[in-house]
């Protein structure tokens, strides 16, 4: 009798695997999953071995699939801010580059330079890489070169508030010849340590403008 009762208790876990916290899934692990509910048709196309396609004459019950994928990096392994930025890197960068290209079609023939201003150097490099790729994929001419400033310029600029520092740096790039009339610089900027989005600024002909 005890075996029957235990069998009944564990029967649902055998036939009903669920990503929600429960008998077989801890709450912590469940929170590492990103899930999406899709129709049975879409699920059978994406997972042909696991989900049966709908019957030609319809189903007796409404079927749908909850598709979950585990996040690669578990919570706590990276700084929350880095994780928030990196986990949506492609979307963030696509958004910023499209605003640059769409808002300034007159710069389409220029060579684009990219610079990222983010406190962490590895994340900054990732931002720059992703932005360059996004611009190239939009058919623009992009260079790996970065405009340079003299040590004196850097010393002055780092003591200015951000709303003045970026326009001033843009002017200096133009003045010292680091950027010419054939160049446009797309800067990816994080302005506040509490935000999980990025901003885009554009420097062309010594003029700075915020895009987003």
């Amino acid at each position: 009798m005890i075996i029957v009762i235990l069998g009944l208790l564990f029967l649902p876990t055998l036939i009903h695997k669920d990503p929600a916290p429960g008998m077989t899934m801890s709450r912590t692990r469940s929170r590492t999953l990103e899930c999406e509910r899709i129709t049975a048709e879409v699920a059978s196309q994406r997972y042909p071995g696991k989900v049966q396609p709908s019957r030609p004459r319809g189903e007796y019950l409404e079927r749908s699939a909850l598709v979950c994928a585990e996040r690669l990096v578990r919570p706590g392994l990276r700084e929350d801010r880095d994780e928030a930025i990196l986990s949506s890197l492609q979307a963030l960068v696509a958004d910023l580059t499209s605003s640059a290209v769409d808002l300034h079609p007159e710069l389409a023939s220029r060579t684009w330079l990219v610079e990222a201003f983010y406190p962490s150097a590895p994340v900054s490099a990732k931002l720059s890489f992703a932005t360059k790729n996004a611009l190239v994929e939009r058919g623009l001419l992009v260079s790996d070169r970065t405009p340079t400033l003299s040590a004196g310029d850097v010393d002055v600029l780092t003591r200015m508030p951000p709303e003045q520092a970026y326009p001033a740096a843009c002017r200096r790039y133009n003045d010292n010849g680091s950027m010419g009339a054939e160049h446009a610089l797309l800067a990816i900027v994080s302005r506040d340590p509490r935000e999980t989005i990025l901003h885009a600024g554009l420097c062309a002909d010594g003029q700075w403008s915020w895009l987003k």
Partner: peptide, 12 residues
Amino acid sequence: EAEGTWLVLRAR
């Protein structure tokens, strides 16, 4: 880079 549930390779 690990971006959420995606592993993304970028090359140039």
